[in-house]
Amino acid sequence: MTNMNSVALAAAFALMTISPASAKDAIPQTQTVRNVVLVHGAFADGSGWRAVYDRLTQRGYRVTIVQNPLTSLADDVAATKRALDQQDGPTLLVGHSWGGTVITEAGDDPKVAGLVYVSALAPDAGETTAQQYEGFAPASAFVLDTRTDGFAYVARDKFKSGFAHDINDAEAGFMADSQVPINLSAFGTKLTHAAWRTRPSWAVIATEDKAFDQAMLLHMAHRINAKITKVSASHALFLSQAQVVANTIDTAAQTLSKEQ
């Protein structure tokens, strides 16, 4: 076999391994917002973003996943800032749940072009996370197991019903057993920045979320003037509706690229 034939066969094989969807959805080389930083919430870790990560990287995005220690707002913001320091250009910052508070505080970084809130909290400067719950119905299905040191888990026997009722038992069980507890004192920390005041925002809201009152999620999303996408999902929508979340991130990045 000649070298030319070998090269031709290798090229043909490479084309066969690229799915039509990935070739069709690949972002253009001219797109300026190509970096995405994903920030998880309480009771979870960065591995929960895997399905979203796979969809975004397949399209050509550079995706970085933050591992929040969940020990304080300052510690989680510092972890996110370290991830932002690694970026080589305009970046979309994405947060789930408590991660919304983190991106609100950390999102004043000059590299951040926009924010995506995934069933996430969005306090204002001078407010605490806890204040966002005031005036809204409590999440009765979302039961916490608070330990004597002030850290809390979602109660193991309530995890699936309260956090992830739309994923299978095995996956929900793994998530429940691999929880990262959060220091509840973080919810009482006042923010010093509200990045949504200076950055365009998007919000994906799970309509079957048992962790937050729907009215609360909508109130926050409207207050920050976010472009809202609703999807039938649990609080774990980053898993059960990863395609919708990835599509929203993609839309936000494309929109911001056209505006720059």
Rank of each mutant, 00 (worst) to 15 (best):
residue 75 D to V: 01
residue 113 A to D: 10
residue 222 H to P: 02
residue 231 V to E: 06
residue 77 V to P: 01
residue 256 L to S: 03
residue 254 Q to K: 15
residue 39 V to C: 01
residue 50 R to D: 13
residue 145 D to S: 13
residue 154 V to D: 07
residue 139 A to E: 06
residue 84 L to W: 03
residue 153 Y to R: 09
residue 144 L to K: 01
residue 12 A to E: 14
residue 59 R to S: 05
residue 234 S to T: 07
residue 87 Q to M: 15
residue 168 N to L: 00
residue 217 L to C: 12
residue 3 N to A: 15
residue 7 V to P: 06
residue 199 R to W: 08
residue 244 V to P: 00
residue 198 T to S: 14
residue 48 G to T: 05
residue 94 V to K: 04
residue 134 E to F: 09
residue 119 S to W: 05
residue 168 N to V: 05
residue 233 A to V: 12
residue 215 A to I: 06
residue 84 L to R: 04
residue 233 A to N: 01
residue 25 D to T: 11
residue 199 R to K: 15
residue 123 P to R: 03
residue 24 K to D: 12
residue 101 T to N: 13
residue 19 S to W: 05
residue 51 A to S: 14
residue 212 F to A: 00
residue 100 G to Q: 06
residue 141 A to H: 04
residue 203 A to K: 01
residue 209 D to Q: 05
residue 19 S to E: 01
residue 130 A to L: 14
residue 53 Y to M: 07
residue 255 T to V: 07
residue 250 D to E: 12
residue 25 D to L: 14
residue 128 T to A: 08
residue 166 D to Q: 14
residue 259 E to K: 15
residue 211 A to S: 15
residue 27 I to C: 04
residue 126 G to D: 05
residue 98 W to K: 11
residue 36 V to T: 01
residue 80 T to E: 04
residue 101 T to E: 10
residue 201 S to P: 07
residue 82 R to M: 06
residue 123 P to I: 02
residue 247 N to R: 13
residue 64 T to D: 12
residue 135 G to H: 09
residue 244 V to W: 03
residue 207 T to M: 08
residue 114 G to W: 03
residue 151 F to M: 12
residue 215 A to D: 15
residue 128 T to M: 13
residue 259 E to I: 09
residue 76 D to R: 08
residue 166 D to A: 07
residue 150 G to K: 03
residue 234 S to K: 07
residue 81 K to V: 12
residue 157 D to P: 06
residue 235 H to W: 03
residue 235 H to Q: 00
residue 189 T to G: 02
residue 135 G to M: 08
residue 70 L to W: 02
residue 159 F to K: 00
residue 230 K to L: 14
residue 43 F to G: 02
residue 248 T to K: 12
residue 10 A to M: 14
residue 249 I to K: 04
residue 108 D to S: 10
residue 30 T to P: 00
residue 124 D to K: 12
residue 164 A to L: 00
residue 157 D to M: 01
residue 18 I to Y: 11
residue 234 S to V: 04
residue 128 T to R: 12
residue 142 F to Y: 15
residue 131 Q to M: 09
residue 186 A to P: 08
residue 235 H to E: 02
